[in-house]
Amino acid sequence: MTPQQFKENILPLKDKMYRFACRIVEDTEEAQDLVQEVLVRLWDRKGDIVQYKSIEAYALTMTRNLCIDWLRTSGRLLKEDPAEMDLVDPVTPYDLTEFRDTVSRINNLIGHLPEQQREILHLRDIEGYDFDEIASILGLNLNVIRVNLSRARKKIKEQLVKAHQYDLQRN
C-alpha cells in the first residue's frame, strides 16, 4: 500500500475507530490517543495490509485489542463472569431520566451492557456492519453474534420502555 493509498483509505477510518474505541474505553481523550496509536501501527504494516481481506475489519480489530490492552494496563478491565454477565449493573428507570437527552440515555444503557454485547450492538446498530464483518472483527461465530445482539437489543428496549413509562407517570 502506498502512502497515498494509506492516506485515502486508512486515515478516513479514524472516526469509526474512534467511535469503537470510545465504546470500549469510555473515555474520549484516551480513545483519541488509542486511535493515533492504531494508525501508527497500521502505517508500520501498510506493506502488509493489502493481504487482509477487509482492512476496515482489521483496523477495528486492532483498535479493540489496543483498547483492551489499555483497559488492562490501567486497571479498568472488570473481570466478567459469563454467568453473571446478564445481571451486571441494572439501570433503573430513574437513573435513565437523569439523562436529559435520548442519546446520552442510550449511551449509558449501552455502557451497562456486558462487553461482548456492547461491542456487537455498536458494530451492528451504530456502524451497520453485516454479521460476517462483525465476526471477523471480533473473532466470534455468527450464532454467538446473533444471540448476543438479540440480548443487547432486548435489554436496551426494555429499559427504554420502562423509562418511557416512568416519564409518562411523572408528567
Binding site: 502512502p3 492516506k7 502505517w43
Partner: peptide, 17 residues
C-alpha cells in the same frame, strides 16, 4: 516478503501532499 516498511521517505511524501 510482502511486508516492506517504506519508512520515513514515504512519510515525507504524505506531508508534502
Amino acid at each position: 516478503k510482502s511486508m516492506k516498511i517504506d519508512g520515513l521517505d514515504n512519510l515525507e511524501k504524505i506531508e508534502e501532499e
